[in-house]
Design a protein around this nucleic acid. Sequence first.
DNA 1: GCGCCTTCTGAAACCGCTATCAAGAATCCG
DNA 2: CGGATTCTTGATAGCGGTTTCAGAAGGCGC
Lengths: 347, 347
Amino acid sequence: MSSKATTIADVAARAGVSVPTVSRVLTGSARVSQAKKDAVEAAIAELNFRPSAAARMLASRRSQVIAIVAGDTSRYGYAETIRGVEEAARAQGYTVMITVVESQDDDEVARAISATLAQSVAGIVVLKFDAPGVAVLRQLPPDVPVVALSGVRDVGTPQAVLDETRAAEELTSFLLGLGHATVHHVRVPPSRREDGRTTGWRRALRKAGAPVPVPLDATWEPRSGREIGHALATDPSVTAVFCGNDEIAMGVIRGLNDAGQRVPEDVSVVGFDDHPLAELWSPPLTTARQDFAGLGRRGFQLLLDVLGGSTERLYSSERPEVVHRESAAEPRPRAAVREARSVPAGA
Amino acid sequence: MSSKATTIADVAARAGVSVPTVSRVLTGSARVSQAKKDAVEAAIAELNFRPSAAARMLASRRSQVIAIVAGDTSRYGYAETIRGVEEAARAQGYTVMITVVESQDDDEVARAISATLAQSVAGIVVLKFDAPGVAVLRQLPPDVPVVALSGVRDVGTPQAVLDETRAAEELTSFLLGLGHATVHHVRVPPSRREDGRTTGWRRALRKAGAPVPVPLDATWEPRSGREIGHALATDPSVTAVFCGNDEIAMGVIRGLNDAGQRVPEDVSVVGFDDHPLAELWSPPLTTARQDFAGLGRRGFQLLLDVLGGSTERLYSSERPEVVHRESAAEPRPRAAVREARSVPAGA
DNA sequence: GCGCCTTCTGAAACCGCTATCAAGAATCCG
DNA sequence: CGGATTCTTGATAGCGGTTTCAGAAGGCGC
């Protein structure tokens, strides 16, 4: 589908050299006299020749395409991570293909893997943020160069991680340190039995000897947080809430507000990710900043290492930084809580 | 990089048929006796054979890959549109490749086009939301199947559009109808000299005979809206603001709030897009709902029509629906404005 | 039972490029 | 100055499929 049916043979004819010589200047695989090189380059320019990636791939058994396999492409963390991978790949002359895996259903996972592998990609970056991602990773043939990107370290595959467990623990401990008796948790759909964020939260509570409430489940939709906020508002033991991500936190805050609770005066709410709108929300969200684009870039770099045949321990971890803003504060004293509660709810 | 070096020849040998026969069952291009067909299918399954897309492409000069060319991948509208294209493409067995064009710089545009075309794609979907997208569309060789996705209709290329001009006009008129003397406008980086949203806004003001303030320019960052909000707060003639997108609107509202102005009591603010957080914002945003994913799906469908050789007028337009929420209200009476202004700003 | 038309099927060519290899030209050395 | 190297270069053989094309088989009418 290239502009014209211009092939390497046309270029060779125009430049008065053989086909392999053109190939050599194209790939730089061997020396070519300056004169012929110039002639070839001129011919390429004049003919506006573009080598066919398919033919190259076939002949050389090498490819400049990488695939990103993900359960979603448009949600904040996913989109940012993809952006990071793409940027890094582009900088190195790689093209990126995207495969979406809808579910962890065997057929769907097999379809996605098939579609990806059929393209003769050089390597794969799997976004292991959710169950489909995990499933793909498990079913991928073992000899395919692959890097996993996620929030929790796993054995096996080379991977880049944002250590959400540690960050969640820190965030929860911070809330506890403020004087809250415990911290409730609203989680987003987990990638496995338990998310790193949930683990970190639980760990912090355990360490502090605080009671561990049952986590509440939100969907990826921010509005699901709102309903949970309504529910939370009816429970006077709720004074601090740790949400699986900022969007859910915003929903929860909204729900709490609907029910007349103020944040952070009545309830503290923290999120996760440092979404671009987190700082603009009222109140501005205390959260853990996740550098998704950076995760993507690190992931691609790792893939490059794998492709280069590196035998080192291919692993890169980074810890999200807790960002203190205004959605978390000390709990109000017991008496004050009662009092506030009897007052009609105001904006 | 396929799992094994399994080729069609291996399958043929295993099934006891010739190579072309295997190819025939693979592509369904010609009848094959049921017996051999079964044998081939069994062999394919046993060998876990996956035909090489590169080889197929080369031999058949056809491709099941489409490219999405976009100036960005992670911002809301872009990410959603990409999701829509990908979904529709996947449903039809197409694989999608992504090419990002950073700028409208000639070299960069040429690089992106080259990278895309080298992959022998079946067709291209260009996100014509910004200047780089427009530039790519202009420089693409004329014989490449391409569909443009955007907010303003253009001549030439087949395209799917979300008619933002009409929606912007409607939104602005609505504000005017509420009693505002004029509507200020904060625009996002435009794709051309003037955006559809800006045009619609201007048109509504003209029709109503209202003064046309100079538009203010925001970047894509929500926080840039905040600064503009601060500036807007100092101008008493500002009673209604139409923002280029919801995120900017949120920033503007935040900025207005910082300066002690309330929305919608003191100033009405409307956005554009109906971002998932728009309904959760305080106040919930009045905006125009843009179905980006739908745009993407329509775009892919159009591309399929182009590829099918359709000669009809390939064009699909949809009009965003105005969503009425609480960020827009009648202006307060003149006297009241004065009075409010003399009161110290409070949260 | 024979010629003619369908169906199936395999041999061979080819898609556009790279890898291998050997030949010819240029350069070097004692 | 002859033989040994070192460079360039083109012929040739694939890469893993698909696409003619023609032959082999089976079906039909008379």
